[in-house]
Design a protein around this nucleic acid. Sequence first.
DNA 1: AAACATTTCGTTAACGTACACGATATATGA
DNA 2: TCATATATCGTGTACGTTAACGAAATGTTT
Lengths: 353, 353
Amino acid sequence: MEKKNSGTVGVKEIARLANVSIGTVDRVLNNRVGVSEKTKAKILKIIKELDYQPNIFARRLASKKKLRFATLIPKVSEETTYWEAPLHGIRQAANEIKDFGVEVISFFFDQNDKSTFKDSATKIIAGQFDGVLMAPMFEDESAVFIKTCNENKIPLVFINSDMPGYNNLCYIGPNLYQSGYLSAHIVNYLSPADKKTLIVNISKEIDLHHHLLRKEEGFRNYFEENGAINQISKIDIQQTSYAHIQQKLSEQLSKSSYDVVFVTNSRVSTVAKYFEEHQIKGVKLIGYDFLEDNILHLKNKTIDFLICQKPQEQGYRGVMSLYDHLVLNTPIEKEQFMPIDIITRENYQYYSN
Amino acid sequence: MEKKNSGTVGVKEIARLANVSIGTVDRVLNNRVGVSEKTKAKILKIIKELDYQPNIFARRLASKKKLRFATLIPKVSEETTYWEAPLHGIRQAANEIKDFGVEVISFFFDQNDKSTFKDSATKIIAGQFDGVLMAPMFEDESAVFIKTCNENKIPLVFINSDMPGYNNLCYIGPNLYQSGYLSAHIVNYLSPADKKTLIVNISKEIDLHHHLLRKEEGFRNYFEENGAINQISKIDIQQTSYAHIQQKLSEQLSKSSYDVVFVTNSRVSTVAKYFEEHQIKGVKLIGYDFLEDNILHLKNKTIDFLICQKPQEQGYRGVMSLYDHLVLNTPIEKEQFMPIDIITRENYQYYSN
DNA sequence: AAACATTTCGTTAACGTACACGATATATGA
DNA sequence: TCATATATCGTGTACGTTAACGAAATGTTT
């Protein structure tokens, strides 16, 4: 009858209904100490009944609480600019939530130097952060770091590559197997019907190599499952210098000629460079990632397709997941697979990372 | 000396520096009447010097001002469920900004009945809204509506299809020409090298037909510009019933056989249905939009590729643009082209509209 | 110059929450 | 029993902005 709450219910209304002061209501809301179990239950009941939603504006205005997130990803190197995009996404998210009292600090490591990973990890532990986003590239080192975070009850999100079996808040990144599978499908559409395909893995660190194998697996399985006739060769290149890649490719291509070359990561631009310098034409080239170098060769028509998985959004959603979890208390999806985008020279200009 | 402002500057600090009260500062901030030009200039100068950013939380807490947006898009019909997605995006945005005091009300019209468009438009004008999002499908009727909005200084955003030459806040949607061009590129990759292609336009209203022609133009121009040999036929179907489409397709396919069929809109599922019922195999089929029916045929392997342009995001970004403009005062990009996404049976499960 | 209208400006109470502080009530110890 | 510690709770102020209200200054009309 006398329900005259003018649209919004607040602590005041709750306090009135529970015959307590707003201070007490505030205590149970922020589950602080100093309130008896009995009244706590009573207030909780009313809160649930009213479906009370705290006013985030009033909360932010009155609160001086601050959260601090750390991010740990590879630094952008001369070898690849891939990690610019996730960093950009991280910064974008950081900018959006800085008014809500959270500060994001970025740490980096060298993909070719595990010790730099450990150094940054140590700094993060010492820094007493409230949440961490990381790219778990080195298995052993990451495992140690994850364990420490778990002990300190620091929520962790993984981006770009997963580490199944560990206790993390969520994973945001590609489904590697499926992206290889898709690549195979595209290859399958390319003429001629009976193709000779070369898979090229270029990666120095053995830990990273691991991910490439998942893509290769998806790639091969497509042809098996679809009974398509196809001859697949493969070459592993464990030195990332152009000279070395050049030599390896020359060796391989002297043995046989191919209709399609599938490079399992963003290093595809190096292969494209080789093709151009050696005047190799008519070979379809497929690779990964929306990088400036790659796009250049896409325009050149040396590269035919690029697969991309929204690296920027990975960074963005990664810190947003921490925010949603820690501030908004919303449930987080454990595995967030990125779309598998196909980039050609007709649609790259509209692509958003 | 007594500068004790802890980090943030607010109206209080501005008022102190300008030797006025916070009330006066508030007046110039919200450019209300009742303040002399002289003091207004003085305050404005200080605001600029301090690079004052109002606290959005305090603002929202104290303000009871409300904004109202109207959206005007086709209703979802039995013919096509395409417009579910934009509506979903609109609702998502509405939900995100409702705490910021903006209410979004959706109006609809029937794509096959211009009078319903006029009815809804009239209601919107009568409703005194602060911003409008619309899909300007009917040229003449839209022009009238746009004119009225302009006179009332109501910002307008267009989604899904543009009306160049009119005064709108922004356009959010596909670049139709380019998406046709991309489709042609995909077709060009499909074996055999010398293909016979059929373009299928299915649309009742002549106004809508217009958009399909842009895609067709892009499609044709690809082959011209790239000097690829290709025989392109075309068929216009102006009745959307299955019986009629079936008849038209049968006529066309009896005259000649084709390697590739390109349907210029989401009606591609109807053609797929025809293919299945008539046991037509080996014809590559390309069409538009991530609709349940289409995906079904994609899985069936009847449809080979779908082009999609993030309809949900169009709705989302549409109302967000109004919000950014009206509330945050941020500059808005006039033309926001959506990415041109390629959907296959390998990546559809990860697609986000 | 009185009376009134208008412009310009200051004061103050909200908005809903956080949190320090102080006030009770209850439990514990001697 | 009294005193002291502890658990429980209420009060008040602050956060930065909005907007209603009214005061003061200025302008206008007789």
